[in-house]
Amino acid sequence: MSLDETIDALKRAFPDVGASEFRGQRRVVVPREAIHRVLRALKEQYGFDMLVDLTCVDYLDYPDATDRFGLVYLLANTETNERITVRTFVNDPQPSVPSVVGLWEAANWLEREVWDMFGIRFDGHPDLRRILLPEGFEAHPLRKDYPLSGRGERHNLPVIRRGEA
């Protein structure tokens, strides 16, 4: 089944799915409610057996943007070497999507990174902890409303003086 046929079949099965193409890269936009079913179908019926990347974009203050966070799933079919981008959008407050760790084990750390940097909850994730920032860090620093130099988190570190040993 070619990629065109895959996308046509996907649109028949899920009428809400929109498809587009940019410089030869095919992508589908899925409403948040259907994201897990679409990803499951892509894996189990259309052979996209590899999750290449899972990341997020913050569209705060972006011209013409209607939703705040865009989640991006990059999938690959290792049999046919086809690739597809799946996008969905979530919004404040408490943005969340279903976890796909059950489909691709690779999603485990990627979802932890998106949680760490953007604060998007992945419902059903087995171990949703911070992965890069230290424990106890309050903010999600890749959000566009987070200041570049931080909110003073590093100033809470203990100070060691001369003579302490």
Binding site: A139, P147, L148, S149, G150, E153, R154, L157
Partner: peptide, 8 residues
Amino acid sequence: FDTYSVVQ
């Protein structure tokens, strides 16, 4: 590296 994570 004037960022939130690097000690100044």
